[in-house]
Amino acid sequence: MAAVRASSSKSYFALLDLPERFAIDPAELERRYREKSRHWHPDRFSRAPVSERAQVLQRATELNEAYRTLRSDGKRAEYVLRLHGVDVRDESNKPALDPAFLGEILELREELADARVEEDVARLQAIKSRIDAERQQIGTQLAAGFARLEQQDPTALAELTKLCFVQRYYQRFADDIAEHEEAQAGATAVL
């Protein structure tokens, strides 16, 4: 897989006229995205030649992808690392993670499974809060790490790579919780 989508030579940041850095103002991102989406909206080009319409559609798709990537702290962090030549989707970049960390993830997973079986709402909530807190802390560490990267700190890149890997475990955990909650909500709605 190419490091950055080849279809446009512009980075996601450039597509949205934003500076190429991790620190981002969510309101600004939102504003730029709306502005650009309006500009590249396929409806505005309905009378253009076919080839141009195809290009516009591609632009609109790229714009959506850029927005989705930059909106999420985790995805944006991984994207900025890719711009620095580190692809965390590549397992061969996997740093040695502390076995204690994996143990902790496994324990949390077991606890989550137990709480679901027992339908222990309070415990489920506690696990969710803990995951949220961990993710928030990682977010803070990512921001600090990227600030150091911008100041050419040579150790920052390796640390950020590791953080992004750690972040994925919690991301996956949070996704799992969200999916489960949706499924539950769906089941209740059917009743």
Partner: peptide
């Protein structure tokens, strides 16, 4: 205890081994 960060998977494998170095039993999560 191993993990695959790309998908967030975690795997624990345990082996019960006798003095002759033969695996008697195994468990996983």
């Amino acid at each position: 205890l191993v993990g695959a960060p790309a998908c967030g998977d975690v795997m624990k494998l345990q082996l019960k081994i006798d003095d002759g170095g033969v695996i008697q039993d195994a468990r996983f999560k």
